[in-house]
Design a protein around this nucleic acid. Structure first.
Lengths: 329, 329
DNA sequence: CACCAGCCGTTCAACGTTGAACGATCTTCG
DNA sequence: CGAAGATCGTTCAACGTTGAACGGCTGGTG
């Protein structure tokens, strides 16, 4: 009735379970003819290794956990997709968790509660800071993703958000825009993504001697399309003149673009827009979205490399980015 | 050095491991004062249950596997998000796999290879048919998602694709369109999604006495934005007149919309568009996308219900849909 | 006072797998 | 001819947990 075990196969062939194990794993010595018979029995009886027992015995699970804020956000979905693909190349199975950016969910994950013993954890924290994580209970290797990290005792993978934002803003400046709004500031709570991108924005303006007009800096609750749309509404209604928008992610940019379109504001003629993330969607929006493109596949590979690498010094891997010039700016 | 075990905690308090286990699980009898001391020790030593051992002993893992073609497609990402959320309500952990629609990946998953023994599997097959799955090795409960199913011996959750497509097409007809193109036919290989939606399209036209013009039926490789854009290009270049498009999913619709915009064709004035899936993106596209909206949260809940329900008769759950009327049609 | 029921906690074995240690046989070589 | 290796397979124990069975207490009941 139950699943076939090594012992079942061994009994069927007339050898010990361990010998079957040796054939399955290619360990030890087994005669060729016996190997053949055992392999036949393996197939005939439909043996599949019990991962739990294997893990209990060996300590390795062949699985890593990936914890992301929200899969319904394309950036994280695309990143997850890359991580799964990259892990598969290394025959690692990925277990994906959704934290919704909640601190308790992130802590539970980082403490390894409620999930099987993992060989590693890739966490993209929103709520938890490096200090919070320093006290975590679990000792499984961890790699952090994103920029909510600061001085982290853990290896992490990130893009240079300030530089990237500066480049994005500089691109708008280079195309002749002077009244550049920023959508994505988050005053409530120290959201490092938002801060760093805002810093880049300011730096770009200042480096060419444009004064930062605080009225052009729009705050948002979250980084979703709806927030971008709302921010754009408010910006228009405020009556402050602007000729470009740097949105701190693509969803905000697309939301804003939707508002502009509804309000009869032409993109890029009246307002140029640059986003951040390079999600697929921006390639097919109307108009297509100019954006900062971090190399997601490289992020995935780097994260897995850091997990695999036994040299546990806290390494920071900076992933390159490029500006994808499309129709919106 | 290693992780704290029940025995460690027991030794620390001066009781057996089993007594600690009783406290952790609320089983058996333990004096109140002892419970308190054990709980303190649990926290002090940072005990966390070993899922592998638990699973090996009890046979239950508290995890289900979800296998989807591709997370980078918003529909699947949003569905995965709903599944994870719905599973969390039932304190179930979800392990997400990506099959890329490959038959071998789908078979491996359905046979439970390479993944821990799962309490259940939710599979959205693209390549595998019901017959293929009938011979699967594994006996863990399975629920199928989507319409590539036919006469399935397994419980499955789906929307009435034909009816939904008919309703979508009818909506275009009701708004006065007569030359309605269909984007999403897939001649190569029996893709049931495509077939069913095409059937609904034909049925809607025929029911009002409009002859189906085969030149208006556009084939695509996959259901991605790029395929939709390409199909629209070809449709325009073919010179065949059309005033509306029913795209078999939102990505195709958005891709087509992108082409129309680039070619100076106005949506919905010149061409009305209806999609299928109701992904977030369509709410903020320019113009916003009218689409068939299956209730994704209901799909997630139904799938989990079917997994949990011990009555293993092959049940088909039909999920309701509605037409989301937005700007594109 | 004998017996039962409710408490409280223990020991034992088993889940399926694999590393370690140990035979046994057969070659090969000094 | 004896010893050292190579080859082939076995048994044993352990990973951490929990169901089953058991053994004492205490207090109440017939």
């Amino acid at each position: 009735m139950g699943r076939t075990t090594l012992k079942d196969v061994g009994d069927h062939v007339g050898v010990s379970a361990k010998t079957v194990s040796n054939v399955v794993n290619g360990t030890g010595w087994v005669r060729e003819d016996l190997k053949v018979r055992i392999r036949e029995a393996l197939v005939e009886l439909g043996y599949r290794p019990n991962a739990a027992a294997r893990q209990l015995r060996s300590g390795r699970s062949g699985m890593i956990a990936v914890a992301l804020p929200d899969l319904s956000q394309p950036y994280f979905a695309e990143l997850a997709s890359e991580l799964v693909a990259a892990a598969e190349d290394r025959s690692i199975t990925v277990l994906i968790n959704q934290t919704n950016g909640h601190a308790d969910a992130e802590r539970r994950i980082s403490d390894g509660i409620g999930i099987p013993v993992m060989d590693g954890l890739i966490l993209s924290p929103l709520a938890l800071s490096a200090d919070d994580l320093a006290t975590r209970l679990d000792t499984t290797p961890i790699v952090l993703l994103g920029e909510h990290i600061g001085e982290s005792p853990f290896p992490h993978v990130t893009v240079d958000n300030t530089a990237a934002s500066q480049a994005a803003t500089a691109h708008l400046i280079a195309s002749g825009r002077r009244r550049i709004a920023a959508i994505g500031a988050q005053p409530s709570g120290p959201n490092e993504t938002s801060e760093l991108r805002l810093n880049g924005y300011r730096a770009a303006l200042e480096s060419v001697g444009i004064a930062v007009d605080e009225r052009l800096i729009c705050t948002v609750e979250e980084f979703h399309r709806g927030d971008g749309a709302l921010a754009a509404e408010r910006l228009i209604d405020s009556g402050v003149a602007f000729d470009a928008v740097f949105a701190f992610n693509d969803l905000l940019a697309l939301g804003a673009m939707h508002t502009f379109s509804a309000r009869g504001i032409r993109v890029p003629e009246d307002v140029a827009i640059v986003g951040f993330d390079d999600i697929e969607e921006g390639r097919f929006s109307t108009p297509s979205l100019t954006t900062v493109s971090p190399d997601k596949a490289a992020i995935a590979r780097a994260a897995l490399d850091l997990l695999a690498d036994p040299s546990t010094s806290p390494i920071e891997t900076i992933i390159p980015f490029q500006i994808m010039r499309r129709a919106s700016a």
